[in-house]
Amino acid sequence: MLIEINNLHVSVKGTEIIKGLNLSIGPGEVHAIMGPNGSGKSTLAQALAGRSDYEITQGSVRYLEQDLLEMAPDERARAGLFLSFQYPVEIPGVSNVYMLKAALNARRKAADQPEIDSVEFMRFVKEKAALMELDKKFLSRGVNEGFSGGEKKRNEIFQMAVLEPKFGILDETDSGLDIDALKVVANGVNLQRDGQRSFLLITHYQRLLDYVQPDYVHVLADGQIVKSGDKGLALELEEHGYDDILAAANG
């Protein structure tokens, strides 16, 4: 298994949001988590990435044979976990390439490798930017500074392409995108599917799953996974809405 989440409970500011969640993802698998607003989708993503104000009150998470919950957020990232933010943060004064170079070199340093050659780095980064149809000018601009909503999301997937993680968590990367931007983002994800790399797609809508086909679909409600299935479950949700599924699950 790449990641095994057992009986996870997460509280935010004293309120329990995730209430005993179980989920296992194997290498190369793509899982989608769907659910209504407030079901705990983003809390799960942030907690896995290690946000300090998300308190884990119970449960365990094994990631690549390590205790994920014992690892600092930057250690998790260097171990191959990547979070595509639902609301990417603007950081004026820090250029995209500067941040990515620092991120890559931090990985190399942890692996006792020398810093990346600047020329090689720029060539690599430009190649990935082209795949995401991200204009070169975005590379030298401040991180997400003045980017449109769609540009921010493309920038997230671009960063994922550069950092080449083992496990990508996409937190509502599709929301707010028009169909063209959605295709670019989906294509970016598909290009990174190599049979080894795993993904967790968190989404409110079935739309993304037309373009990135998941192996498994889970329905999250009130902090627990209430139903799991294959990609057919997403279509069922699209047709009947969450209410029917939740009623059936509860009944």
Partner: peptide, 30 residues
């Protein structure tokens, strides 16, 4: 220091001290 910006840099694998340095430099960059 902006905590959300800090977490964003950490989530990219940048160690805390370097992340702080980057944000400090950014503050003065203008």
């Amino acid at each position: 220091l902006d905590e959300t910006a800090m977490f964003y840099l950490l989530s990219r694998g940048i160690p805390p001290q370097e992340a702080r340095n980057i944000l400090v430099q950014a503050f003065a960059s203008e």
